[in-house]
Structure formats: structure tokens, C-alpha cells
């Protein structure tokens, strides 16, 4: 499919840094016009052929889109919800023909697995967890970790890992030791299948051993931000590197609030230090609203309605994509299957870009 449009980085003239570009490769138009909340790419198998499909979530409808030709997508399946709206799609690696969604109003009340009936192809739903859920993450090897329940902290909080059996049916449940603080987000520790990282409402990180369920360490980070989101974590040379964001941060006068930050922690001593702050180029307004990190690329929607991309290795912003067709961007997701970026607008339209 030949690119329909090219949007290059709008960096200040004279900036010597390398710029990236976004090429629009296709668009998913939402005829209903209802509010779009999330998008994801997942694998779907039919007649022995496994292909990447796009899953979109509007308020009460989740849709599966398949390729009909290189530029055309067709909606082939929908799941509808009568009472509780969809908050997010939960991608789970290594899983196909299954979509996981979190439903709720202000906070997650249910996690459901969506599939198709093998008899007539009709929609099927399976309730995986109900009650207040504060954090959820899909993990490699068909696992889904979530936390919530009770008042959220202390012994009321339950942290559980569900391992999904092949097919939509059986599942195995395991509990992890809960920290005393409410867990806000989870992040897998790349390259360490048995380790899991979490951020807490008390501005700390916690590490679990997923095999034993042990809570290994609580590490406080030295910054003043609240509600830290961890997007990516990896261990190198005995140290823990975490890419995080602060969606609730207020802009400071001196240097603005960074969209993303790289923090290094020694898990043995719990001492930490800030390594890198990923800020907007000078003169650009807006602060982080929501974002996604894949490999060494971070994408964010800013309060200005613009999408920004950072190369975490180079340390700077490579693309600024302003609102398209006078519609602010509302969310961005990296495709888990290739180097594509999916950007959504509130009117339900999704744009698929190739990032280079």
C-alpha cells in the first residue's frame, strides 16, 4: 500500500538532531461516530491462516478489523456491552483469537475475554475478574496480572495472575503477595520471565517473583510526582532501568514536565537516580496525557492534541504530528507486530502510520 500522506517532524529550524517521519498507510473509519477509547493489534487465525488484525474499542462496542486488501480494513466481528462501557483493551502476548478488555466507568469493574463461537461465529464473552480492578497487564506465556479488590491497599488488595489455557476455556489462578500500597501499574521486566514490576500510589516500585508469588522488594523513588506509570523495564548489569511517565504532573516553570523519564534503580540497595528526561522541543506547548513505549520508541498524546515520538536511545523527540482534520488525537499505541503506530481520535477514526 503506497503511503497516502507524509508527516515529518516539525522540529525547530536549525535543530541538528535526526528527525523521524510518520507515513499514513491506512485508516479505519468508524461509521457510528461514537467515542473511541482504545486500539490494539492482535493475531487472529482462520482456516489455518494466522494474520494480524486490528481491534478497536468504542464506548460500548469492541470491533475486530481484518485486511481485505493492502489498504482496506473490514469490520468482521463486534462484541457489544449493554451496561458497563469499555475502558481499555488489554493485549496479551502469545494469545490469538481472544481479545481481553477492561470495562468500567471511572475505574475498571470487570475484565472479560472475548472470542467467537466455533459453531456460528457469533460473539462469546467470558468474565475473568469482577470488582474494583486498579491495574491490569498482559504478560508473555499467556498470563494476565491484575490487582484490586477491597479498599485497594494492605491485605484487602489482591494481586492475581491468571494463566490462560489454549483456547478460550480453562485458566489457572495464582496470587502474588500484596504490598501495603495500592498498585497503580504493572510492567514486565524484559528478558526476565519470572519477574514483575509494579508502581504504587506511594511513589514506590515493587518487584515480584512470578513463580513463587514473593514480593521481593519495595523501592521508593526520589521525585515529587504522584501516580507514576511504568511503561517499560529491563535489567542490565545488575541494575533496573524503568521508563516512566507522570500523567498527573503539573508543568513547572523552569523546564516543563518531561513526557517520559528513564530512572535507574539498584534493586539490592533500592537506591535510584534519574538518567534521562524526555521533553518536548523548546517552544512546544503541552504535557503528557497518555502514551505507549515499544523497544526504544516512546509515543505520547499531549494535552495540545498533538502526538509526539521520542527515540529513547537518541534522547530526543523525533516526530510531532499535530491534530489531523481539526481533530485532536486522543490515544496512541504501537503495533505489537511491526513498526506501526496506531493513533485514534475521539470520533472513533483510527489512523495507522508507518514510523521510520
Amino acid at each position: 500500500c503506497s503511503p497516502q500522506q507524509t508527516e515529518t517532524a516539525d522540529l525547530p529550524v536549525g535543530n541538528s538532531l535526526d528527525a523521524g517521519s510518520l507515513q499514513l498507510v491506512s485508516q479505519l473509519k468508524n461509521p457510528s461516530g461514537s467515542c473511541s477509547v482504545d486500539v490494539s493489534v492482535m493475531w487472529w487465525e482462520e482456516a489455518g491462516l494466522r494474520e494480524p488484525c486490528v481491534v478497536t474499542a468504542c464506548e460500548y462496542v469492541v470491533s475486530l478489523w481484518k485486511h481485505v486488501d493492502p489498504c482496506q480494513w473490514e469490520k468482521t466481528q463486534t462484541w457489544t456491552f449493554a451496561e458497563v462501557p469499555v475502558l481499555q483493551i488489554v493485549p496479551v502476548p502469545d494469545v490469538y483469537n481472544l481479545v481481553f478488555v477492561a470495562l468500567g466507568n471511572l475505574e475498571i469493574r470487570e475484565i472479560r475475554a472475548l472470542s467467537c463461537s466455533s459453531d456460528d461465529g457469533g460473539e462469546k464473552q467470558q468474565l475473568l475478574r469482577s470488582g474494583t480492578v486498579r491495574a491490569v497487564l498482559g504478560l508473555p506465556r499467556r498470563r494476565l496480572v491484575s490487582s484490586g479488590g477491597g479498599g485497594g491497599a494492605g491485605c484487602d488488595q489482591q494481586v492475581e495472575v491468571v494463566t490462560l489455557a489454549e483456547g478460550a476455556g480453562g485458566k489457572e489462578k495464582q496470587f502474588l503477595m500484596s504490598p501495603e500500597e495500592t498498585i497503580l501499574t504493572f510492567a514486565e521486566l524484559q528478558g526476565m520471565q519470572e519477574a514483575l514490576l509494579g508502581s504504587t500510589a506511594g511513589n514506590s516500585f515493587v518487584i515480584w517473583n512470578l513463580k513463587t508469588g514473593q514480593l521481593l522488594k519495595k523501592m521508593s523513588i526520589d521525585n515529587s510526582y504522584q501516580a507514576t506509570v511504568c511503561h517499560k523495564a529491563y535489567s542490565e548489569m545488575g541494575l533496573l532501568f524503568v521508563v516512566l511517565s507522570h500523567p498527573c504532573a503539573k508543568q513547572t516553570e523552569s523546564w516543563g514536565s518531561p513526557a517520559f523519564e528513564l530512572v535507574v534503580i539498584n534493586p539490592k540497595t533500592t537506591l535510584s537516580a534519574g538518567m534521562m528526561r524526555y521533553c518536548l522541543p523548546p517552544g512546544q506547548a503541552g504535557r503528557f496525557l497518555e502514551g505507549d513505549v515499544k523497544d526504544h520508541f516512546a509515543a505520547a498524546v499531549l494535552t495540545s492534541g498533538t502526538v509526539a515520538i521520542w527515540d529513547l536511545l537518541l534522547g530526543h523527540c523525533t516526530v510531532l504530528a499535530p491534530p489531523s482534520s481539526n481533530q485532536s488525537w486522543s490515544f496512541v499505541k504501537w503495533s505489537g507486530t511491526d513498526s506501526h503506530l496506531l493513533a485514534g481520535q475521539k470520533d472513533g477514526n483510527i489512523f495507522i502510520y508507518r514510523y521510520s
Binding site: T212, S235, M237, G238, L239, N266, K268
Partner: peptide, 23 residues
């Protein structure tokens, strides 16, 4: 940042913390 500011580093931190943490 200076690595020395983070204290002694262990390459086997995950195994060591797992053996020290309560079961």
C-alpha cells in the same frame, strides 16, 4: 549518574532477593 552512588551491585540480584524474601 554515578554508578557508585547506587551502592554495591549484584548481577544475581533476582535470585538473591528471592532467597532473602519471605516465602
Amino acid at each position: 549518574c554515578n554508578k557508585a552512588d547506587l551502592g554495591p551491585i549484584s548481577l544475581n540480584w533476582f535470585e538473591e532477593l528471592s532467597s532473602e524474601a519471605p516465602p
